[in-house]
């Protein structure tokens, strides 16, 4: 009950403060337009039900993959078990490129590259989850640091021989035959998916202490080398 009151209060505050909020947090009206890209799969607002994708009321601060009656991929459930929480920063990264955060997600959506459109969309979604006290500094609505990957990083050609040496450290856990038991397989991935996933661990956008630590000490060239090596393992 208390929760609902807070939501409607947030709505009121947001709309009343319209213009001022728009400059800081994004333009809610444009966000509503951008949300059309999500609408075929997601509902938000009063009485929203799960569709192809889970309903998005209260998404800020919610754990990934945590709605009982929604259908999630194994990857999304695992991310939630590992502690992935939908904060402003994490949502922004997910909407930019869903696979960077959740490699094998069921959400088939290429992502929104325009940072302003994402900010507007999130300003719109916040209406359905904000607690006014959180606006805008604290989690889960704090604006995160910039996490965009420089296109030059994606363009690096990795050295597969170096990748094989570096990769010997990975295959203690990730088997070369690509099995998914307990630890996900990482062979045969498109280079870009691999690189964005590793950078998301490195930037600590993805949860998981082992992988944050392993990725944390790899340079951009080393990540590219690993991607080049694992791509060709069947």
């Amino acid at each position: 009950m208390k929760f609902l009151v807070q939501i409607s209060l947030a709505v009121a505050v947001t709309f009343a403060a319209g213009a001022a909020l728009s400059s800081e947090l994004g333009d809610v009206d444009n966000g509503k337009v951008v949300f059309k890209k999500c609408k075929s799969c997601h509902a938000v607002g009063e009485g929203a039900k799960n569709k192809v994708g889970p309903q998005l009321n209260g998404i800020f601060g919610r754990a990934a993959g945590s709605l009982d009656d929604a259908k999630y991929s194994k990857s999304m459930t695992r991310a939630g078990d590992d502690g992935l929480i939908w904060t402003q920063e994490i949502l922004d990264a997910f909407i930019e490129n869903p696979k960077a955060l959740v490699s094998k997600t069921r959400m088939s959506f290429r992502g929104i590259k325009d940072a302003d459109d994402r900010a507007d969309l999130l300003a719109f979604l916040r209406i359905y989850s904000d607690n006014p006290a959180d606006i805008p500094e604290a989690e889960p609505t704090a604006i995160g640091t910039d996490h965009d990957l420089d296109p030059a990083i994606l363009a690096i050609q990795g050295d597969p021989e170096y990748g094989e040496y570096l990769g010997s450290e990975c295959i203690t856990c990730h088997q070369t035959n690509g099995t998914n038991d307990g630890i996900p397989g990482i062979t045969g991935w498109p280079t870009e998916d691999f690189v964005v996933a590793m950078h998301a661990y490195k930037q600590k956008l993805r949860p998981h202490p082992v992988m944050q630590m392993m990725a944390g000490r790899l340079s951009d060239e080393e990540i590219a080398a690993l991607a080049a090596y694992f791509k060709d393992l069947e």
Partner: peptide
């Protein structure tokens, strides 16, 4: 999930 990881690791390191 942590226990399942250790199973994955055991299979990985012995392989």
């Amino acid at each position: 999930a942590t226990y399942e990881e250790s199973e994955g690791w055991y299979a990985g390191i012995t392989a």
